[in-house]
Write a protein that binds this DNA or RNA. Structure first.
Lengths: 250, 250
DNA sequence: CTCCGTTCAGGTCACCGTGACCATAACTCG
DNA sequence: CGAGTTATGGTCACGGTGACCTGAACGGAG
């Protein structure tokens, strides 16, 4: 039982990391703040971006990595994720969900480390609050440099989950403010799924889903017919947000 | 930073547990071994069962719990799950996938414990190999006693995942042998989804999916037209079996 | 003030997957 | 040989979807 003895002597480290997704213009500029409230509304296509942190200590010092840190004794896993997000990027994400626990023996060259990884969606106005600097930068999710540890694999998996889940769950509104136009909502889908959607068919599906309702307001200022504003009703469950979420009554 | 000091002094324990699902007759009898090979083929409706282990030490001594144990320094998370399964139930499951990491601060009364939970599907002939005894018993998944720790919540979540995934992924064959009839495959769906399915429509869907192919063999002996035997082609990906699974090429 | 370009909004239509259902085939047993 | 049972194949109505068309409502150019 030398294994057990070794496990007691040098324990396995437990960390959390988070893949944070936000939509930004293809050139890297942040989206117009609350897209509808701002004004003319950006019509440039958006893409998926995420903030990374440069490692300032060994191992893998200098490489870009996901924000994260060790789990303290008196905090839950999600609590640790939220604390680390607040400390490194000052973000309080709209949407936060556990992604996967990564625990291969050799994933960290130093100490044995198991990382419980979360993924988060933030609104453009939240994303702007990220304090940029030498050690915090935004990167396009589809074109990342070589990251520290197994973080490239992690981001790829999170991106796959985002795109898969976008097709069957109502998570798109986590990228938007409380009120939004159908064009903005469609823009989120197009950015994540990377394909154009028919505006008329998109409208029909959203309306029949019961997930959104008109607020009564419209957005004026555009050189075209003023679009109505919508909000999420909350009637539609976010699917599979974890074991603590009450299930949809069958 | 007293928290950091405390974390270093008494580290967080890392454990794995597994929810093992198998199909058995409603009265608890195991299904006919490899259902088709056996003989007449059981026609009694099957239900979902899982094996539990009685705790033989504090805390929660005497209560039923999921099989599991601590992760050793030199094994991966999935490796630890497989080792614990082999040690406690002698099972080598056909299907094994990570479910969720449970890490609430108060989930274990003793030491701070984070459990990475897996879920597994086993064939009836594998399930029979489980050495039953005072401390290992099968329980119907929908009618469990009060389990140790948060294991009731965990089983409920695993059951929800099983039922959800059954509807969009081809995992049903993990409950069967290499060859099976469409009636047997349909029986798996009916047992998990808890609703009858139309045999003709079920056949049409399975055939058009491309997931199965006829082996050429038939099962004789029944007092009716002999059903054809099928096998899985492997063409259809098991969806979302973890980050290491190659994605379906878009 | 009118025309024009734009997007919003509402509608039609063919097609396909689905569930409900019917009919025949092929076996065993009495 | 007929009865009973399941396997297998087919039809049909319906609902959701994608492709596409038409009018509505604005700002801006002339």
């Amino acid at each position: 039982m030398s294994n057990s003895d070794a496990a007691r002597a040098a324990s396995i480290g437990l960390a959390v990391s988070t893949v944070i997704f936000a939509l930004r213009d293809a050139d890297g500029a942040p989206r117009a703040t609350p897209p509808s409230a701002g004004g003319q509304g950006t019509d440039a296509p958006a893409t998926v971006w995420l903030p990374l942190v440069r490692r300032i200590r060994e191992p893998q010092c200098g490489r870009w990595a996901l924000p994260g840190g060790m789990v303290e004794l008196d905090e839950s896993l999600e609590g640790a994720a939220r604390r680390n997000l607040a400390e490194t990027t000052e973000l309080q994400p709209t949407y936060l969900e556990q992604l996967y626990a990564f625990g291969d023996v050799d994933r960290s060259p130093d100490r044995r480390l198991v990382s419980v990884v979360y993924w988060a969606l933030v609104r453009p106005d939240e994303a702007e609050q990220v304090t940029l600097g030498e050690n915090v930068q935004w990167f396009p999710a589809d074109d990342l440099p070589e990251l520290a540890f197994d973080h490239n694999l992690i981001v790829d998996y999170a991106l796959w989950r985002l795109r898969t889940k976008m097709e069957y769950s109502a998570i798109a509104h986590a990228f938007l403010g409380d009120e939004f136009t159908l064009a903005e909502l469609r823009g989120v889908y197009e950015a994540v799924l990377q394909k154009p959607l028919d505006p008329a068919n998109f409208r029909r599906q959203m309306e029949s889903s019961g997930a959104i309702e008109a607020t009564g307001g419209v957005v004026t200022g555009g050189r075209h017919r003023p679009p109505k504003l919508y909000r999420y009703t909350g009637d539609v469950q976010l699917v599979d947000a974890g074991p603590l979420t009450p299930r949809i009554p069958a």
